[in-house]
Design a protein around this nucleic acid. Structure first.
Lengths: 181, 181
DNA sequence: GTCTATATACAGATAGAC
DNA sequence: GTCTATCTGTATATAGAC
């Protein structure tokens, strides 16, 4: 699992940033190359097509989710609480990748859609043993989905109408009470 | 408030359908005109620009939401329950308009984004008197957001990983128990 | 009101120099 | 490995006939 070149990563960073900050329509190869500080030709050396660029983003997303899931499993405050807390409170690499993938999916990229569905399934598998039943799982997943939905609507950095800090703590407690015994 | 011409409405229907079924990238004026059974020139008589087309969709959304809110207020099973039940269980005109607007928003249209934020605020105002406190409101809104998020990911007609039928009834009961006294 | 034809701009992608 | 130049397709928009 050798680390890819720096230029490649900064192209992905730029692509992701435009998706988040401006939306799918503005995430062109031209704009991405410019934001990454390379020429179009340079970008196309690393990613031979727009789809390859999207695939690169989704591959990185997959890896970040893998790490994220490992972290949630080890969380001291419990799996459910940590899962909800990291459902886009902050501006972490996973969160950014997920919002960017959401934008791609909504633009009409079926691979982005499938990736997000797969991630949600992984999360559900992770949470299932820690809640009372299927209904409780639905509740936890939907609250998490709701947090991501608001993050996707607001782009990065902007504080949405979603609980944070102590309010988020209280929400987590409320959901846990409803979802666990 | 005179009813707009039939052709105008069918153009909006077509635009909405493409947004939902294929995504923002595919919702071009050409594709919309074709799907609506008019020529590009015909479309442009009714909507002079892409933005005007989007504005038309959002204006219709606003009206549908107004009707939707009036219905929720009158719901026999209670405001919270009816609100959650209509958070995209089905394939109603409001739901379709919301998913289409979500796609526009994720593509990078700021007016679609603002419209969705406004609608969410209207809903919150509607729900607020019917729940225990601000925390309970957060819970109800986030579950609703989560349902819409899944609807947006799945497009129209496809059954997502989201509760339906009796499972949905149980979820609504669970949320009500957690959110009301 | 609806059409065809066309102008303009930009997206994605290729060729080939350095 | 990164660049410039360019080709091709297509999206938005205009002009003007019917």
């Amino acid at each position: 699992m050798s680390r890819p070149p720096v230029a490649r990563e900064s192209v992905l960073d730029a692509f992701e940033a435009i998706l988040i900050d401006r939306g799918e329509r503005f995430a062109t190869m031209d704009a991405t190359a410019k934001a990454a500080g390379v020429s179009k030709g340079g970008l196309l050396y690393h990613f031979g097509s727009k789809q390859a660029l999207a695939d690169g983003l989704l591959a990185r997303l997959d890896e970040l989710v893998r790490e994220d899931i490992a972290q949630i499993e080890r969380a001291k405050e419990g799996v459910v609480a940590h899962f909800l807390r990291t459902s886009t409170t902050g501006d972490t690499p996973v969160d950014r990748a997920i919002v960017a993938a959401t934008r791609l999916a909504q633009g009409g990229d079926p691979t982005a859609n499938a990736a997000l569905r797969g991630i949600r399934e992984q999360w559900a598998t992770l949470i299932r043993p820690h809640v009372r039943d299927a209904l409780a799982l639905d509740l936890v997943m939907l609250v998490s989905d709701g947090l991501y939905y608001n993050a996707a609507l607001d782009g990065s950095g902007v504080a949405g109408p979603v609980p944070q800090g102590e309010e988020l703590d209280a929400l987590i407690a409320l959901v846990k009470r409803a979802a666990q015994d």
